[in-house]
Nucleic acid binder design. Sequence first.
DNA 1: GGAGCGATGTCCT
DNA 2: GGACATCGCTCCG
Length: 199
Amino acid sequence: MSHILPRSFYIRHPTVVARELLGKVIASHIDGEELTGRIVEVEAYLGLADPAAHTFGGKTERNAVLFGPPGFAYVYFIYGMHYCLNFSCEPDGVPGGVLIRAVEPLKGLDTMVRLRGLASSANPRLLASGPGKLCQALGITRSTHNGLDVTRKASPLQVFDDGYSPVSILATPRIGIRKAVEEPLRFMAAENEFIRTKR
DNA sequence: GGAGCGATGTCCT
DNA sequence: GGACATCGCTCCG
């Protein structure tokens, strides 16, 4: 039996939320269709104490969601062409979030292939194996998804617990950042076939 | 399978 | 004006 993760799930420290998000299922509703994927790779961003976090310099219009209540989607635009998806953590007023880096596509693969602009013969591993890729595969953009409450029953973006949990979790430094590059705040479901090269 | 690199818009100093 | 929580292509082995 699967259920939507409640707000209390997200109210904790980003490191705890990040680890526990592994194995949970993201559901995106696009044009009446449900697309789902299991979270296999995440990174924690720690708010004011973390030089690599968008919230490090304080609250701005862009990062306001991360300062708000837990359980909301923070979607930002990066490198002129990609979106990245995070979920806000910590109590209202305390910044913090978890970046979703990869999901294992479960449902709606044909639509994901189309949204990604790939050939129908494409390897499913290429569909959502990166933060920009998974947003494209799930139809997530800043204008449509930033600030959405993912704990709401009617939300077009939700996160479910379907009872699955990863056998073991791998922790490594985060990637693609320039500051605080040593902190082991990237977490992966170690046994999953959809994570990329380990290190 | 990995290093190098260009594309490209938005945010913040 | 520079940095940027990326991706996919090329070229090389």
